[in-house]
């Protein structure tokens, strides 16, 4: 069974040979290759090599693009600030009124701005790993892009003060966000991944999530699926407990969970989505020992493995200074404790 087949098996509700193993690894892989995050934007071949090396060295079942790069936001007029060690950020909003929304440019992510570079990285990643390994690529969701263009705090205010304006902006960015997601599929991404920490339980209430995030992501992910994505993944960064039931209805195949109880999630939502997670990235993977990582990984497997529908991962992206031995210990755990014996497969 290939890595990609393994992942698609759990998405289809089948039992693979072993639990798949994925890590959001942009920071970690570039550090392993001695690159800064800035280098990712000028040296595509080195970034691609760094990802391919992780598959060979740590037994990961997929590679990640230069995720969390808000290419669409930039096409729509945002100014990105790059840093050697952190995701590109957008310090200031560029949209302040309805006229600005109407003036947002029509964009073609295949041709403009930084998007073609990112799409090319996806294309080359797919070529490098071939059909057997999953390529996972990140696309911004409408809520995230809208709040970046508007400025985070002003967008939060809009939700209360001027919900019609918030919806107008969301509707305007929905098309470009979706177009970029589709372009990722066209370029060879097997799995399109998205995340939106600003819509978690620490930021907005469930009714607001239901009104301003849920319908837009559901539509966008539906279109990306139609475009031929083999799976759609959503990373619930932060606390999402009170809205996971909505998340799993957003045309999502895999929920990459932050801190949830694995067994509890599986009991409730296994019928709707595959759970991916959630060994603690900082406290265990970064700060722990090979022994404690192995133990934590086996605990995750003990809770998640039964009945399939589970992918072993960390609860967020892997910190860049994570010891390689700790990642290796996680891989070792999945190879010995993640195996499905013949016979405990399909009923």
């Amino acid at each position: 069974m290939t890595s990609l087949e393994r992942i698609l098996a759990v998405c289809a509700g089948k039992i693979p040979d072993r639990v798949p193993f994925l890590l959001a690894s942009r920071e970690f892989s570039s550090r392993q290759a001695g690159m800064s995050l800035l280098d990712c934007y000028t040296q595509p071949e080195r970034y691609i090599d760094s990802q391919v090396r992780l598959v060979d060295e740590f037994g990961l079942d997929g590679v990640y693009d230069i995720w969390c790069t808000p290419a669409v936001d930039e096409l729509l007029g945002a100014t990105l600030e790059f840093s050697s060690s952190d995701s590109a950020s957008i310090p200031n909003g560029s949209v302040s009124c309805l006229d600005d929304v109407k003036r947002l440019p029509k964009v073609d992510p295949r041709r403009e701005g930084r998007a073609p570079y990112l799409l090319d990285v996806v294309r080359r990643l797919k070529k490098a790993v071939g059909d057997s390994v999953a390529v996972i690529a990140w696309a911004s969701s409408p809520f995230r892009t809208a709040s970046m263009l508007r400025g985070v705090t002003d967008f939060y205010r809009d939700l209360k003060r001027d919900p019609a304006f918030a919806h107008a902006l969301l509707n305007a960015v929905h098309g470009p966000c979706t177009a970029y997601g589709k372009a990722l599929v066209e370029a060879g991404a097997d799995i399109v991944c998205s995340s939106n920490p600003g819509a978690n339980m620490q930021c907005i209430s469930r009714p607001y999530y239901e009104e301003f995030s849920h319908p837009y992501t559901r539509e966008m992910f539906g279109a990306i699926r139609q475009q031929g994505a083999k799976a759609v993944m959503f990373h619930t960064c932060g606390k999402w407990d009170d809205r996971l039931d909505l998340v799993v209805k957003e045309n999502i195949d895999i929920v990459h969970c932050d801190r949830v109880d694995i067994a509890g999630f599986k009991a409730k939502y296994s019928g709707s989505a595959v759970l991916m997670g959630n060994l603690r990235a900082v406290e265990v993977l970064l700060q722990g020992t090979e022994e404690s990582v192995g133990r934590a990984a086996r605990e995750c497997l003990a809770q998640g493995k039964e009945g399939g529908r589970y992918i072993l991962s960390a609860d967020c992206s892997v910190p860049r200074d994570t010891p390689a031995g700790n990642v290796r210990a996680m891989g070792a755990a999945v190879r010995d404790s993640g195996r499905y014996d013949r016979g405990d497969g399909e009923k």
Binding site: E27, D86, S87, T153, P197, Q202, S317, P319
Partner: peptide, 17 residues
């Protein structure tokens, strides 16, 4: 402020508010 290596600044923004 956030020193370096953090991919999330929502925490800092919340504290700032």
């Amino acid at each position: 402020g956030v020193i370096e290596g953090d991919t999330h600044d929502i925490g800092k923004n919340m504290v700032r508010i």
